[in-house]
Amino acid sequence: MQVSIVQFPGSNRDRDMIAAIRKVGGVEPNLVWHTDTELPASDLVILPGGFSHGDYLRSGAIAARAPIMDAVSKAAHAGTRVLGVCNGFQILVEAGLLPGALMRNSALTFVCREVQLEAVNTDNPFTERYSKGEVIRCPVAHHDGNYFADADTLARIEGEGQVAFRYASGTNPNGSINDIAGIFNDAGNVLGMMPHPENLIEAAHSGSDGRRLFEGAMNLLQADAA
């Protein structure tokens, strides 16, 4: 199994993601720089959190036009699984790999705290280790996580099961429409989410609710390879 993590100037959760892949999957991820034009052979590509290019223009807007994103887009359209967390979610949206937009938090402040997430669609490698409707813990840390989509797009992603996670129990930290915290693309192989599952995978984090997201995708990838 090959996992690639794309790094941008301003990435600051890439080390957390590297540690999560090592600890959960027991594999050493490939590190790919934003100016590269090719991806190594990859079963899973991850865009980690941070503040790529200082969040200038819009969060993720410059990174979405980095040379490596052509290769990420081709891989996604070929069926490779792609995970974008926080800034990675913003980049996927800006690159057109996921629908909608991520706007400034409704309170116009940076939020860094733990929220609760409801697993909405668990018929997917990323979420299959959760039970449908299960509420889990997960930390967030973002300024521009307010998910928005126009009425037609919202109806489509809701109706076609593209909502992966919602903020639950009144913990929506940013004003996201329909409490959306994470979405799939229409093919189901691309997941973008604002919360940070990589920061809740072991006892040192005071919990492991995020671990199952990585276990699900990586175990299925191993099964596919077999």
Results as ranks from 00 to 15, higher is better:
Tyr130Ile: 14
Gly170Phe: 08
Thr109Arg: 14
Ile68Gln: 01
Gln116Leu: 13
Asp150Cys: 10
Thr122Ser: 09
Pro99Ser: 12
Asp150Gly: 08
Ser59Val: 13
Gly145Asp: 08
His143Met: 12
Phe110Arg: 06
Met103His: 13
Cys112Gln: 09
Asp144Ile: 09
Glu134Lys: 09
Ala119Asp: 10
Tyr130Pro: 14
Glu128Trp: 06
His142Glu: 09
Arg65Trp: 03
Val85Ala: 02
Val72Glu: 04
Ala149Thr: 02
Phe89Ile: 09
Tyr167Arg: 00
Leu83Val: 05
Gln116His: 15
Tyr147Ala: 04
Pro99Gln: 13
Phe89Gly: 08
Asp70Met: 08
Gly170Trp: 00
Gly54Pro: 03
Ala95Ser: 14
Val115Asp: 02
Val82Cys: 05
Phe89Trp: 11
Glu158Ser: 10
Pro139Val: 14
Ser73Cys: 11
Ala75Asn: 09
Ser59Cys: 15
Lys132Met: 11
Glu158Ile: 10
Ile68Met: 07
Ala75Leu: 09
Gly100Cys: 05
Asn105Ser: 06
Tyr167Ala: 00
Phe148Asn: 07
Val111Thr: 03
Pro99Trp: 08
Val163Ser: 00
Cys112Met: 06
Thr127Leu: 10
Ala95Pro: 01
Leu97Tyr: 04
Lys74His: 02
Glu118Leu: 13
Leu102Thr: 04
Ile91Asn: 00
Met69Gln: 02
Asn124Gly: 12
Val140Ala: 06
Val111Ala: 03
Phe148Ile: 05
Ser73Thr: 15
Leu108Asp: 10
Val135Leu: 09
Thr122Leu: 10
Pro99Cys: 11
Asn146Ser: 13
Leu83Thr: 03
Ser52Asp: 10
Leu98His: 01
Leu102Glu: 05
Ala155Thr: 12
Gln116Glu: 15
Thr122Arg: 04
His142Ser: 08
Pro125Ile: 13
Arg113Thr: 13
Pro139Ala: 15
Ala119Thr: 11
Leu97Gly: 06
Leu92Gly: 04
Val115Gly: 05
Asp70Asn: 14
Met69Cys: 03
Arg81Met: 15
Val120Phe: 04
Gln162Leu: 10
Ala168Pro: 01
Leu97Gln: 02
Gly54Glu: 09
Ser106Phe: 10
Glu118Trp: 08
Ala66Glu: 13
Met103Ala: 12
Ser169Trp: 06
Gly84Asn: 04
Phe148Cys: 04
Gly84Gln: 03
Pro67Leu: 11
Asp55Met: 09
Arg113Trp: 03
Gly161Trp: 03
Gly100Lys: 05
Ser73Phe: 01
His143Ser: 15
Gln116Gly: 07
Asn121Leu: 13
Gly88Trp: 05
Asn124Lys: 13
Ala95Gly: 00
Val163His: 00
Glu134Leu: 13
Ala64Pro: 03
Val135Phe: 01
Gly88Gln: 04
Asn124Cys: 15
Pro125Trp: 15
Arg65Gly: 09
Thr153Pro: 04
Ser73Arg: 15
Ala155Asp: 12
Gly84Arg: 06
Val163Cys: 00
Asn172His: 06
